[in-house]
Write a protein that binds this DNA or RNA. Sequence first.
DNA 1: TGTAGGTGCAACTATATGGTTGCACAAGGG
DNA 2: CCCTTGTGCAACCATATAGTTGCACCTACA
Lengths: 111, 111
Amino acid sequence: MSGVDAVLGALADPTRRALLDALAARGQASASALAADLPVSRQAIVKHLTILEEAELVSSARAGREVRYTLRSQALDATARWMASLAGEWDRRLNAIKRAAEAEDQPRRPQ
Amino acid sequence: MSGVDAVLGALADPTRRALLDALAARGQASASALAADLPVSRQAIVKHLTILEEAELVSSARAGREVRYTLRSQALDATARWMASLAGEWDRRLNAIKRAAEAEDQPRRPQ
DNA sequence: TGTAGGTGCAACTATATGGTTGCACAAGGG
DNA sequence: CCCTTGTGCAACCATATAGTTGCACCTACA
């Protein structure tokens, strides 16, 4: 479950999310190609792609003189599951606490 | 779907996640109480809680001289769904592109 | 073989961010 | 009424982060 940290950190930046969108549209693209889509330099794109790759949200493969990046949905999906189960956990605990509070209050008014 | 930005930004910080954990354990707590759990000052906690509240991950309610914070699972759950559907979208697009690539290659070897 | 397109590395800048401290103010409880 | 406890505000600091520019280095290809 440690990849969650990296995924959340990676997804927190809007430029990075835009980058993922651009990659989803192209299916596969080099850093230079992606730099044409976004209003930042190629070097900035490369840095973002490195972070995304460390979070396992994209993978890279060399093809001749260029490096092609592709999306990887697995880590994103895993993080989504983690968040959903966390939300469930919160609900469970809050309900338990609410019930405990009621159980503590009821005995005080026997009538 | 604009709350996703705030939620992701809020969840990206480890101290904030620890704060949410502490809140889940207590069910309800003031900033001062939470500061006892974590290794940072109360002021830092307050700043984090403000960010979490803007992301609608917690809500606050005044109770006498203290302010009680509680978890809100809705925004977290919504973000989880967003991420899951995004992962699905990626898979769809990648499959479509892969199929298109195959359809373009097949005609070249008729036998 | 030379040149164009792509990558990689490094230095540098500016702003955002997480954190601190200090103090003033509000609210309950002896 | 005083003292404790909690909050709110502001200034301040240090580092992380997003971004830039400049240049060297491959690799395809005409």
